[in-house]
């Protein structure tokens, strides 16, 4: 299976692990990630304002590119995923907005939200299947108590993201279980770490991140996994005393392709 892949700015820089292990693991699962040519940064956050057009064009370009190849568009970073999915939704449902965007991109033909957008986790669940994933595991993570940290961007707004139950999600827990580990469920897994606020009020980010870490630990977590570089940064920066790793790293480890990458 071949899919279009949008890595995002941080994955080519501070979050190389997230990207690298995504590639390796996908390969081990029989999925080829075809990186979109000349992709541009999604902007990190979706602007909800109706009259913002320019900030959404990079997402539309990526969506259109995947559409022309008749491939689903896969993202791995929570933020890119959120921006691209929300942009795609606006293209499908807000004709006024879509008209404006299409006029900006007149030379390249029109786009109206036809491309299917998958987060890498959704790809594992809906295209690969957690059962298949389970069979491909070579290093089982049995006995490890792992807490999934969703943050806000993967799940919300639910009317657009449609990934899982936004208040009691299971996709990452099912992922953890497929790798043989124990999933630790805790209520703060869908609360915000503070995101970009750490430039404005680092204290606010610290309070939020700490509360999340404490809640995960109280539930017995020995490790936290995340899909978002900013979540990882905030949790680590604010004193996580248990490992915080990208879910793709865990996946690569379970699939036995982690060493390969390091070599």
């Amino acid at each position: 299976m071949k899919v279009s892949y949008f890595p995002g700015c941080t994955l080519k820089n501070k979050a190389k692990d997230l990207d690298m292990y995504a590639y390796k693991s996908a390969e081990a699962l029989g999925v080829t990630l075809e990186e979109i040519e000349n992709w541009q940064c999604c902007g990190g956050v979706f602007t909800t304002a109706n009259d913002e057009v320019a900030t959404k064009l990079s997402s539309v370009r990526a969506l259109k590119y995947a559409g022309e190849k008749e491939q689903p568009l896969v993202t791995v970073c929570s933020a890119c995923h959120n921006v691209i999915k929300q942009t795609n939704y606006a293209m499908q449902t807000n004709s006024q907005f879509a008209d404006k965007v299409n006029r900006y991109m007149a030379a390249d033909g029109t786009y109206n939200g036809e491309t299917q957008v998958y987060h890498y986790l959704e790809m594992l669940r809906d295209l690969v299947g957690f059962d298949t994933l389970k069979e491909k595991v070579v290093n089982t993570l049995k006995g490890k108590k792992i807490a999934a940290y969703y943050g806000c961007l993967l799940l919300r707004p639910n009317s657009v993201m449609r990934m899982d139950d936004p208040e009691n999600p299971t996709i990452m827990e099912d992922f953890i279980r497929a790798l043989g580990a124990d999933a630790v469920v805790y209520a703060k897994r869908n609360e915000c770490c503070g995101g970009y606020i750490s430039v404005e009020s680092p204290e606010s980010a610290k309070r939020n991140s700490n509360a999340i870490i404490e809640n995960a630990k109280a539930a017995g977590a020995e490790m936290i996994i995340t899909a978002c570089p900013l979540c990882k940064y905030n949790l680590v920066k604010n004193g996580a005393d248990i490992p915080v790793v990208y879910f793709t790293e865990l996946l690569a480890e379970a699939l036995g392709v982690k060493e390969d990458t390091n070599a």
């Binding site: 995002g8 820089n13 940064c41 990190g44 970009y196």
Partner: peptide, 9 residues
Amino acid sequence: DTPQQLLVS
């Protein structure tokens, strides 16, 4: 260790 994502956002 500041991720690009933080500044961009």
